[in-house]
Structure formats: structure tokens, C-alpha cells
Design a binder for these strands. Sequence first.
DNA 1: CAAACTATGGCAACCGGTTGTCATGGTTCG
DNA 2: CGAACCATGACAACCGGTTGCCATAGTTTG
Lengths: 340, 340
Amino acid sequence: MATTQPAAADRPATIHDIAALCGVAASTVSRALSTPDRVNIRTRQRIQAAAAQLHYIPNSQAKALSSGRTGAVGVLVPDITNPFYFDLIRGTQLQLKAAGYTQLLVDTEESDEVEASTVEQLRKSADGIIVAASRLSDDALLAAAAKMPLVTINRDVPGVPAVLIDTPSATSQALDHLISLGHTRIAYMAGPLTSQSSTRRWTTLSGAAEERGVEVRRLGPFAPKKQSGAAAADAAVHSGVTACIAFNDLIAIGMLQRLRERGIRVPEDMSIVGCDDIFGADFCNPPLTTMASPIEQAGRVAVSMLLARLNPLAGGGARNRSVMPTHLTVRGSTGPAPLV
Amino acid sequence: MATTQPAAADRPATIHDIAALCGVAASTVSRALSTPDRVNIRTRQRIQAAAAQLHYIPNSQAKALSSGRTGAVGVLVPDITNPFYFDLIRGTQLQLKAAGYTQLLVDTEESDEVEASTVEQLRKSADGIIVAASRLSDDALLAAAAKMPLVTINRDVPGVPAVLIDTPSATSQALDHLISLGHTRIAYMAGPLTSQSSTRRWTTLSGAAEERGVEVRRLGPFAPKKQSGAAAADAAVHSGVTACIAFNDLIAIGMLQRLRERGIRVPEDMSIVGCDDIFGADFCNPPLTTMASPIEQAGRVAVSMLLARLNPLAGGGARNRSVMPTHLTVRGSTGPAPLV
DNA sequence: CAAACTATGGCAACCGGTTGTCATGGTTCG
DNA sequence: CGAACCATGACAACCGGTTGCCATAGTTTG
């Protein structure tokens, strides 16, 4: 137990301690541990034994500094308290851990400036970046992607690898669902102006509405938070629509709460469709009809794409675009249009 | 714009680039940037100008390696998808960022092994650690705290600085609330056996029950997830109690769903009390009576305690224990005991 | 048996900063 | 006017690894 070696204070062991213990050079220890083939099997085993005995743990800082690889990947999300990102984060975390990488999670607070400076920071302390729902401009994103490996989630910029969640097509499903229930006056409760998802969704939706000959108006923008739901609900009621497709579940759930307060029944008086199927969408009152997609998997895919880019070994064909399917999950918040 | 300097490839600038540009030694640049008083004001300004021009960003790895300080703090949570931790994480993130630190968030997956190895990892790559709801033994925690600055949240081990959320006393409030509604047969739906919070809460609760002459039985343990609520609900119904105090809101919300499926009305047939007031507790059906506390603030306080320990400048009196108040928030899931 | 090759381990530079120590030159003071 | 002192900046070691290059010795080959 108690080591009688000269080194081994209470301070963590280094390769030099191992080297001294084994009577070899530090570089040999380094090789034995990271390029085992480069070292004779007997020395290697001696070194590995010594490493275990000393509870050696490589210093990741030093490793990063000398090798240029940090073994970390930055994950940027606009709002850590938005349940949508929970599953995403878990997905990235699991996949990164499986590959031996560390996740650096940063909340960019929906600010493009924080996002930009974080990207700059991470340039040194991470091998790559995953950016969810970026608030940066296309140009800024392209520039960032040129400087270091970067994968976006829910942000489509030509030339930047991306995982896209196909909410636009789900939006059409939602529209058809509402039409089949007899709704003809429908509103889209828009998300932030800087959100590309919101814009894409609106484009699809208004196109589909025209094809089908129904009226869909756009209201908002609304912040993607539950509190914004109150304003959204009031706007919807005032506009005279009978159904709403909300930018996301947070807004939708906020609307449910507000409508209840105002004595407006869902779905009898008003139907509501959310997006994302976040935690809570299944147990709110009434349960929310929403557009669901495999978010955790989206995180995993993003990590895979990034790692493929970091280690371009075999495989070659690293896709740089992946679209996650989305489907409508119908629950209690949508129903037949009122007869009025 | 275009620099004519010899250095300045596309690679990020280093202090050496700045030194070359200004005609001084690298060490002078380092001092000008981190110990401004140590350098003549004119040289300093020249250096600062050059740094700005070169878009110099210090390499945190190198900084960490040479100075021993990483500027990062590890935050360990057992389950990143548990909404309880959202606010906590946001609290630590905000407070850390304000102090110029980076947050390293790790999901330990409710595993003591993952937790232990993470702590060991972080010993080199972080200046300190905040551990929420640790699954480690008292001894392991003490040992870890001896090796590096560490603050726990919701884990009371003598000798280890901690932020405690006073759910035990809120549990008594919950019990009194139920008693005042006429309930006499009450169940506590326990959390994981390794959770100290759950144990403390049960101790308080059974003590209080005895004092007040009501029967409180312990059921479980249940995993702190929504899915466990089904089993919990069934167990509660089978045991014949009229009210339940759940380990946390996830279990409570899961119970609500299951009871609804089984046609058991809440609160008419069964009252439910949760704990934590997580996202969703206010909009589930019925809204959940629960024990609320300032979670985000708990995160901030934990960070403050840790930083006070890292930089023991003035102030001196760094507390090593802080208790966050908790109170009962009554909503729709509790009501008068059935008359049967 | 010499030449050529391979496996193995050491040396030393390097990653990008920090920091202790020392030399220089200008001030202040007795 | 010389001694003591202070401000300032350079030098170099160091943090803990990685990696290119070289020397050695053993093996294979012609």
C-alpha cells in the first residue's frame, strides 16, 4: 500500500513518476500508454503495471497543449432551461462519452454575441462544436465552420454540416389534421425572428395553406417560453381563429394555461398544436397535440457527424446533412372546429 | 486590415506573436496582460493594442497547465433530463459565468462509479466541484473533498461544505396540510435508497407523524422518474391510503397519470403532494401541490461557497453550510379526505 | 560475414503560457 | 556623491505531456 518510492507525494502521479519507477524515459511511458505498438511488450507491461499502481491519470490539459487535441466538444444551446434541449443534451452527452470525449455544455442565453464569443473561446479548448438553434448569421456561421469542425442542429446553412429536424413537413401534417377537423381559420404563433426554424416552418405552412385553400395567418413573434403563451393566447382569440399551430410546446402550453384562465375551452372553442413533444406535453391539460421527433437521436447523429469529421479515417463518406423525421402526435388539445 | 507582420498565419495569435510585434519578451506580454501593475504603463498599452489588433485570445489549456488554475468548475448531476436540475444548472452557470469561470457539466447517470471516476478526472481539469445529490458514500465524499475544493448540494456530510434544501421541514408542512384536510392514512413514496434526501425526509416525516398521531407508511423505493409513478400509484391504491407525499414531482406526476388511467380521481379519491416544484408541476392535471424552494438560488449559493474557498481573499468568514428554505405550494392535487 | 533493415528506447524540442530570479538603469536619500 | 532602492523587462525553468529524430542492438538478407 504505502509506496516507498521517492516520488508519490499526495500529488497526482505523472508520466515522470512512472518513468522513474520503471527506470525508463518519460517519452517511453508516453508511448507505452498512447502508442502501445511502439514499445516492447515487456516494458509496456511494466509501465502499465506501474501506472495502475500509481493511479496514474493523464493530465488532459497537458495532453491538449502538446497534441493539439483536447478530447472535448462544445455543445451550445440557446436556453438550458428549455426542456426541448434536455433530450438533445442527453443524446450528445451519451454519444460523446461513448467515444471518449468530454462535453462542454454552454448556455448562450439566446444571444448571438454570447454565442459568437463562446465559439471563439472554444476554438482553443475544444476539438469541435455542436450548435443548436444558432442565432448567428449565415456568414458568421460559415466563418466559424471554416475555423473549426462544427455541426449545427436545426440550422440549415449551405456548406455547414447540419442535423435538421423536419418540422416543416410535420407542420403540413398538422395543417391537414386541423383541416380534417373542419378548421379554416388558423394561426401560426411564430417564434423569434432570428430563429431559422420558425421561418422555415412558416414558409412551408403558408405555402401548404394556399394549396389547400385555407387561411393561415402569422401572429407574433413570441419568445419561446411558457410566459409568452399568455400573449399568444390573447392574440389568437382576438384574431378570431379556431386553431393555432405554435412555434413550440412551451408557447403552446402557456396558451393552454391562459385559455383556461379566460374560460376558453380547449379543444371545444380552440384547438392547439405544439411542436417538439417536450417533457410535459403528455401530461398538461388537455394533453397537447404536437409534432414529435427523435431529439435525443438528433443529438447522437450530430455527434457522429462531428466525430467523423474529426477522425476522417476509413468510412470516407461522411454525410454532412441529416434530416430527422417528424410526425404528428395527436392528443387532446385538438378537436372539431366549433360550429358557429 | 491585412497584417504585414511575419507571424499571423491563420492560426490564433499567441503571446509570442504579440511579443514579436512589440519587440518585448513573451514574459512581459504575459505580465502586461495578467499583472498590469508589474509593467510600465506605456509598454502595457502598446501590448494591449497589439493584443487587440491580433485578436489575441489566451489559450486556456496553456494557462491551466502553467498556473495550475483551470478557471473551470465541474458540476455533477445525477440525471440531466430531470427538470429539477434545470434551474440548478442555470443558477450555477450564471453565477460561474459572472465570476469568469467555465462550467463543466456532467451527467453521472445516477451511478456512484461514474460519479467517482468523474471526480477523479476533474481533479486535473477543474479548480473545484459541485456535486448535486451525490450517490457516493460519506467516506468517498470526504476523501474527494480532501483532494480538491468541493461543495455538495442536498447532501449533508460533516466536514463537507454543503447547500441543503430544507425539504424535511417542508415535509412536515405537507403533513400538516394533509391532516388539516382530514387525512389519517398517508404514504410516503420513497426515492432511491442511496438518496440521502429521501432518507432525511422519511425520518422527519415518520417522526412528525408519530407526534401527531397519524399513520404514515413508507412505500417504495421508486426511481425518481415519471415512469415510476405508475408503480407508485398502484402501490398507494393497494395500501389503502388516502394521501401520498412523493419523493419528487416526477414520481407525483407519474402517479397523477396512472391514477387518471385507472379512473381514480385526484384529489377526490386520493391527494398527492410532490416535491421540488419542477417545470410542469403547475400545468399538470390537476396542478400539483408541492414543496417549492429557490433552486436556482441554491445553485448560485453553491458556486459562491466554492469560489470563496478557491479565492480565500478577504471576507474570511466563508460559511460552509447553507440551508435553503422550502415551503408548501398548494394547488389542485390535494383536497379533503374521502368520507368513506 | 558484411550490409541493410527493424525494433526499441532515449534525447530534446515543443505546445503556450506563468513565475522566480536577475540585470539594468534611473531615483531617492543619507 | 556613493549607497540603497525601486521600477522594469529579459532570461530561463517549469507545468505534463507528445513527437521527430537519432543511436543502439538484434535480425534478416545477399
